[in-house]
Design a protein around this nucleic acid. Structure first.
Length: 271
DNA sequence: AAAAGCCCCTGGATGC
DNA sequence: TGCATCCAGGGGCTTT
């Protein structure tokens, strides 16, 4: 379900509320993508200090030590409340705290909740170690982005999705950002001129930033952890619009496959 | 080293 | 109505 904006909006919807809560119990449902990595009892008594984010991972910093890495995968969503109903078949993780219960619902179970001892934990390194720049932070440096593109021959869409240069750009926003930048998704990353790479850099920030402001939009069924529904204001320019007229030039939008994923683009606006 | 495929899993939409 | 097929927001792992 979630790309960076949805993960960030989810984070903001419960980060304050869970801060400094003490863990009372942990309930596990069906297995997620990876095992928790510790016994549920081991978490009892710890405090949730802060909720951060790296790419599409949420990081629940624990006191006095350790961290929970939370990923929503393709279909995951969170709720945080003190009056949750009994868990349903797709509720696979409950973190019961003094401030409420954080519940992970994930029908497809591509999501994960993983306990690590700290940033140097091998599991943390494996999952977070190769992640690229944060697109909405100052760390997203244009020069580094341009240099990174120059050394990759793969299609630009694939490079964005891979997350090793820049994180958080998922399948929907990749198509949207490339449209905004006027760049064809199949184009080799290394073939982008510096000005066009700069345009893409701006487009990524624009698309993701606006989506965060709108409360996680575009996605069909998104709602944040406090139950607020996504707004849907951000209408897609190309994603999911195969055959429909481009909103700029009216040329029919094309759909292609890249790496088993759908890509949409305007054959006239994007070169 | 980088790139391309392969999976993990369930549910909803579509087609016969 | 029932059943088969395809597709879906991710990304780690294995193979080229």
């Amino acid at each position: 379900m979630p790309e960076l904006p949805e993960v960030e909006v989810t984070r903001r919807s419960f980060a304050q509320a869970i801060e400094n809560a003490r863990i009372l119990s942990v309930r596990l449902g069906k297995p997620l993508r990876w095992p928790l990595g510790c016994s549920p009892e081991q978490l009892v008594g710890l405090q949730v200090r802060t909720v951060g984010r790296r790419g599409k991972y949420l990081l629940l910093e624990l006191g006095p030590g350790g961290c929970l890495l939370l990923h929503l995968g393709m279909s995951g969503s969170l709720r945080f409340a003190s009056d949750l109903p009994p868990p349903g078949v797709h509720d696979h993780f409950d973190l019961v705290t003094t401030h409420g219960t954080l519940r992970l619902n994930d029908p497809r179970r591509f999501g994960a909740m993983v306990h690590v001892n700290g940033p140097d934990d091998p599991r943390a390194r494996k999952l977070l170690g190769r992640l690229g720049m944060e697109p909405l932070s100052d760390a997203f440096e244009l020069a580094v982005f341009q240099a990174g593109l120059r050394q990759r021959r793969a299609a630009i869409k694939q490079v964005l999705l891979a997350g090793e240069l820049v994180v958080g750009v998922g399948n929907i926003y990749a198509s949207e950002a490339l449209f905004l930048a006027g760049i064809r998704p199949q184009r080799a990353a290394a073939s982008l001129s510096r000005p066009r790479a700069a345009r893409l850099h701006g487009a990524i920030r624009e698309v993701l930033g606006r989506a965060v402001e709108l409360g996680g939009s575009t996605l069909r069924d998104f709602s944040s952890a406090d139950g607020t529904a996504g707004h849907f204001q951000l209408q897609a320019m190309v994603y999911g619009r195969e055959q429909q007229p481009c909103r700029i030039c009216a040329t029919p939008i094309k759909q292609i496959r890249q790496g088993q994923r759908s890509t949409y683009y305007c054959p006239r606006c994007q070169t």
